[in-house]
Design a protein around this nucleic acid. Sequence first.
DNA 1: TACTAAAGTTTGATTACTCAAACTCATGGT
DNA 2: ACCATGAGTTTGAGTAATCAAACTTTAGTA
Lengths: 225, 225
Amino acid sequence: MLATETVENYLKAIYLVQREAAAGEAPMGKIAAALGVTAGTATSMVKKLVAARLARHERFGGVRLTAKGTRAALDILRRHRLVETFLVDTLGLDWSVVHDEAERLEHAISPMVLDALDRHLGRPAFDPHGDPIPRADGALQESEAMPMSELGAGDGARLVRVLDQRGDSLRFLRASGLKVGATLRVVAIEPGAGVMRIRPDGGTVVSMSTTAASRVLVRPLRGRS
Amino acid sequence: MLATETVENYLKAIYLVQREAAAGEAPMGKIAAALGVTAGTATSMVKKLVAARLARHERFGGVRLTAKGTRAALDILRRHRLVETFLVDTLGLDWSVVHDEAERLEHAISPMVLDALDRHLGRPAFDPHGDPIPRADGALQESEAMPMSELGAGDGARLVRVLDQRGDSLRFLRASGLKVGATLRVVAIEPGAGVMRIRPDGGTVVSMSTTAASRVLVRPLRGRS
DNA sequence: TACTAAAGTTTGATTACTCAAACTCATGGT
DNA sequence: ACCATGAGTTTGAGTAATCAAACTTTAGTA
Ligand SMILES: [Mn+2]
Ligand SMILES: [Mn+2]
Ligand SMILES: [Mn+2]
Ligand SMILES: [Mn+2]
């Protein structure tokens, strides 16, 4: 742990914002919002990251992690996702609560504990939300998937990942039978209302906004209905 | 977590020093030493604990936890010892390394995770070192035991607890076959050299200083050799 | 092109924790 | 009774992280 807990949180936040952003650069405001701090605070912390060669940044521009910063971010992400997997698989907690728990635990896991955890869990490749777990060497393979919102009426698909970490979203999905690995079918789409109707295999039809559906990633099934 | 991580560390340290001390009061210097800070730092932190009604203290006197402070300390101790138990029983780490790991993890464990951990471990009463684990309601029952240094030559006993958390002490004990639950016999005592010779059941004789032996707690066996 | 709104930065202050060093108190040995 | 020594306290300063509010820049819009 060369970095302080705060620095670790900044690195992870910048990494994730950067992945999302078009230009591959993280806007300062997004970083601040992700961390729940003011823009001024984020600006001064980023200066420290730049001084530590973890990020690059020029005045009024975006923030970009260096190779060193990216490596550190992936290491934190690995700890976060392995902890989430442990909390669900070993301790039996619900997938809607583990994100916040992991947000604190990720900073207290030493390399030794991390490796023991990884072995205990059988070296998993994905966390409970379908997020890929970076390997110890920093390798990260994103799974091939498309937003559920891009499916057409009648299409079948397998749910492979949920990007939204908000507890109520995850509780809604679980209650609907929409968990990672489940297969489902699009019953109908109402573009005017911005709503799609989904039927999970062996469940009842549920309505979701296309916005919410765009944060659920699926892999289409070859079989047509 | 009403308290900060630092405050949690102070509460636990004061609790343990207080248990050790004769007068039931923790001297400021011992607290500082236990936490690795200067006496001045400890003095000012104790002022904060007093302001928060977690401890009582008068100038140049000892420190004593209030009921509220004791309750908080026991809660932290519970987290610490359950985490140690998890690291040994579930992850298979050696008992000589888990103390330091738990020192950090104890602050990141929420009540929900703690309870899930407790259930997963089968609600253990003792940690890997034989230290009693406080119950969720704060109840703590010390086990009946005496220092191994008080045994006489020829006495048999069962090892029930190791007070010393130092890594090399624990590694020595494990390498000698002296683990919690093991039975042993005192082969000889050399008061002049301050050394006792111990034979663990099914092991070979080892020599230990009486000082080291006084930190190993045992329960005598009724059978004589 | 000129102006304004949004985004980002700077400044000055605050809280939490820490140390070094100067200082004060308690006490036990002569 | 004295007072040296060790234990404890206070003071002044520094680091890390944060906010509010004043300020600057950028990038549209008009
Ligand atoms: Mn975090
Ligand atoms: Mn996740
Ligand atoms: Mn601790
Ligand atoms: Mn222990």
